[in-house]
Design a protein around this nucleic acid. Structure first.
Lengths: 118, 118
DNA sequence: GTACTTGCAAATACTTTGCAGGTAT
DNA sequence: ATACCTGCAAAGTATTTGCAAGTAC
């Protein structure tokens, strides 16, 4: 599972991973994929978020601390990653003002991509 | 459903709404709750996001444009709303730089609340 | 042998949908 | 009468779990 995740730079769903691993030698089952993802998430090596209605996506966390967020098209579901240092600073600021020990954050921008808009 | 949502300032799950409406006269069924929420979401009057694993929460959109985001405790699930103008500005900036027509955004900060930390 | 991991299949939980009956125009 | 809205129960989908078999030490 780790190796399969390493092959993706951006988020994938559990079922995509499952399908990918299912045709491997030796084949890997759905349950193992979910179990591995859960562990990796708790270890902070993978981040989970809901990209499309009811479907969780998983993305590996870059150990350097670098990370991006996603813009998602509500028509075709296409997902485009983006980075924005100013946004990160603003989030860190907000995290500091809240009475929580914040350790991660999800940001998703939703709209229509240029292809679907035309 | 609209009236029930109006009674909540912050996000509620579909099942909370269902339970609340179920003991009303006349009683309202689950299906209608989901159907109403879907329509309201498409009209842009309600925003949907995943607060806890696999459970969608819905929150009414303030017509004034004012809105807040949420910090969520990963231990107890407690949710605290917060506002942050600087964060909004940063998001608008990022939205402008992406090749998408962005119309909404989700931001969730996850961590441990002060009660659970102690 | 003991402890842990695996995959299958069954179970679970949230959400959606088919449908029969009711309401409004 | 027609078109729409309702709730129930059944279906659907993503995810989790029980369990028997396999693997490592």
């Amino acid at each position: 599972v780790v190796r399969a995740l390493a092959g993706h730079d951006c988020a994938v769903t559990a079922l995509e991973l499952d399908e990918e691993l299912r045709r491997r030698k030796p084949a890997v089952g759905r349950a193992s994929v979910y179990r591995a993802l859960e562990q990796l998430e708790q270890l902070g090596l993978v981040q989970r978020f809901e990209a499309t209605r009811g479907i969780a996506s998983y993305e590996r966390v870059n150990p350097s601390g670098h990370h991006h967020h996603h813009a998602i098209c509500r028509r075709c579901g296409r997902m485009e990653p983006f980075e924005d240092p100013a946004l990160e600073r603003a989030i860190d600021g907000a995290a500091g003002r809240v009475e929580f020990e914040i350790s991660e954050h999800d940001v998703v921008l939703r709209g229509v991509c240029e292809r679907c808009a035309s």
